[in-house]
Design a binder for these strands. Sequence first.
DNA 1: GAATTGTCACCAG
DNA 2: CTGGTGACAATTC
Length: 177
Amino acid sequence: MQETIRFAWGTSSLGNFLAALSDKGIVALEFGSNRPVMEQALRARFPEADIVESQEDLSTILAGLTRAIEEPGFDPGMPLDLRGTSYEIGVWEMLREIPAGETTNYGTFAARLGTRDARDVTAAIANNSVAVLVPCHRVIKKDGSISGYRWGFKRKRELLAREQRRGIFQLVPPKDQ
DNA sequence: GAATTGTCACCAG
DNA sequence: CTGGTGACAATTC
């Protein structure tokens, strides 16, 4: 059966983003500026689906998402439609339990999941296509340094800085690179 | 800091 | 089943 994916473009202080929703929930929230490329990627990801742009219909959703980006910790209360292997989904669900302003490292995360290796966690997280709402940016390396980020580690650093700015006073300033 | 190596579950083919 | 693969971690110049 043919499913429909609606998408729209949004802007935030972190850059432009693409939001995509199935009829079940959000399937993607990706940063990027090259719209044709991103749209194509979306179509490639859902080759069977009917991909339609509905900028107007999604305006409310866009507003909620934008706020979630600008105000870390704000939960727009939108359903997510996570697509991935069972392992990935498990990781993503756990990510969503990390409170704003806190960080974990891949190793601890792996331990909580069982005996799995830290690198499996990274693999799963890296496959997450819903930025911010699945706070993949709250996972950093064990030594405290910020590791890679799917949408550029500048964004990751900015997101972390904001979250920590709101609640936690002392904080190790991120190293400049 | 930067470069090097160990290591291992996951998943596509 | 097998092999390639890391958004790591620990160790070493």
